[in-house]
Amino acid sequence: MKAPSPLCLHSLRLLAFPCSRESTSYLQRRCYASIPDKPPPPPTSHGPPTLRNPAIQRPPPRPGSYLRSKRDDDEEFTPQPLSRPIGMPQPPQPGENSGLDQRTLRQKRDDFVDYDKHLAKRASMKQQIIKPYFRDWSNMRFHKGKVFVANELLFRARHALFFPNFFGRTLNKGAGAALETAGDGYGGLGRDTCEAMAGKVSVVSVVSNAWAQGQVDTFCGAKENAKLVEVLEGAKDVAQRVEINLEDNLLKWWVLRLFGLARLRRERSLEQQGRYFLVRRGVSDEMKEGIGLLNDKGGYVYLVDGEHKIRWAGSAIATETEKASMIAGLQRLISKAKGEKSTKGQKPRLEEAVAEVVGVEQKTAAAGGV
């Protein structure tokens, strides 16, 4: 038996499901989707450029100076004077912030299987990834990178916070000849800043590039601030200059070691070379936030007393008011340090005089008793 033809099937469908002529005509024709019209090309003044449309031209590249220059749509930022002490709550200790992993194999294994520590490390890496690479350079357009204005008066000693310890190598070649086999990460030349600053008033500068060094020179340079150099020269026994150069980029670190160390040594005496620290690791974000180092591309200057407390701080390019307040604060700290030193020297003499007087009185009493 042959299969029914399509016409027979259609007739049977009409008998089973009677409908109007319009619907019958609709069933007899097939509808196809129409081809859409080609969309018009986007205008040349709007929309992202594409390589497929040569009519759209790419905008000319903008130099970095444009990104660093201040624009009308920027939010206004005005640095404010320090209203409270800055620094770390705990005093620095030798060996801190060396950046070396001192954990044992068992501790490393325990940390590797600790999920909470994985989450903490992931959050830290996320913060580093989302930070724009040129953010600090872009922020230099606001007052030349000035983060805060220096305090006019010294912070009181009982309220001041501590300057953290930085661990790095110095420019002095013979400083670590006996420790070259030590695993400090600097070939045995690693030193602690807290040991170099102990017991002395220190003018500490922190830089990370030539731009920051130029800003620090406005505070401490021999041409820009000859009065500061004169004060330091007159109080070498209680005051000193300490320089810290931060460089966490490994490539720049080796370029500095290969081509920059000789120049830095020529510009400084042998004594100053022992107080110039090159630091590559161990500087955490907490340390930077604690001492106000919020822009890595700028320069910072601190007055630190003999107890490692930050008594004064300045950033970026110095003003005449900041220079005057820094010199006045330094002279006050030097006078106090000299007074304490003289008091310590007179204390044994005073004790000897009291003992001599007591001995004479005892001899007199003994003679009278006889």
Rank of each mutant, 00 (worst) to 15 (best):
T78C: 03
D73R: 04
Q57E: 08
I129K: 13
Q90H: 09
L100I: 11
P94T: 00
K70R: 13
Y133K: 05
K117P: 02
K70Q: 11
R71H: 10
P59L: 07
D114T: 02
A120Y: 06
L67E: 15
K121V: 01
L119T: 02
Y133R: 06
L119M: 03
L105N: 14
R106A: 13
S124N: 12
A120M: 11
Q128K: 14
I130V: 09
T78N: 04
Q57I: 00
Q93H: 04
Q93C: 06
R62N: 07
K131G: 07
R122W: 04
Q93P: 00
G99M: 03
N97G: 11
H118R: 14
K70H: 10
G95P: 05
K131S: 11
K126I: 02
K121Y: 02
L100A: 14
P79W: 00
R62K: 09
Y115Q: 12
K121G: 08
Y133Q: 09
E75D: 09
D73M: 06
E76S: 04
P89E: 14
R122L: 07
P92Q: 05
P94N: 02
D101I: 02
K70N: 10
P94S: 04
P60I: 01
P59K: 06
I130N: 10
H118E: 14
R109N: 09
Q93K: 06
A123D: 14
A55I: 01
F77P: 04
P85I: 01
Q80A: 06
R62D: 05
S83K: 14
A120K: 13
G87W: 00
G95V: 03
G64C: 10
D74C: 05
Y133P: 01
I130R: 11
S69P: 08
E96L: 03
Q57V: 01
P132A: 07
K126R: 10
P60R: 09
I56D: 06
N97A: 13
R58Y: 08
L82P: 03
R122V: 01
G87K: 03
K121I: 00
D101K: 03
Q127I: 01
I129H: 12
Y115P: 09
E76V: 01
P79C: 00
P92E: 04
P79F: 00
I56R: 11
S98P: 00
Q57W: 00
S124E: 12
P63H: 13
S65K: 11
Q102V: 02
M88W: 02
I56Q: 10
D74Q: 03
Y133H: 06
T104A: 12
R106I: 04
S83P: 06
I86S: 10
D114E: 09
P132E: 05
K131V: 04
D111W: 11
P81Q: 08
Q57S: 08
T104L: 02
P60W: 03
P63M: 08
L119D: 05
D116I: 09
R68F: 04
Y115A: 15
D116N: 15
E75R: 05
F77M: 08
D101F: 03
F112L: 11
L105E: 15
L100K: 12
P63A: 14
R71K: 08
K131P: 01
A120W: 05
K108A: 15
D116V: 12
R71D: 06
F112G: 13
G64H: 12
E75T: 03
K131H: 11
S69Y: 08
L82E: 05
E96D: 15
R58K: 09
P92K: 03
R109H: 10
N97E: 13
F112N: 13
Y115F: 12
S124F: 08
S124V: 02
Q90G: 10
Y66N: 12
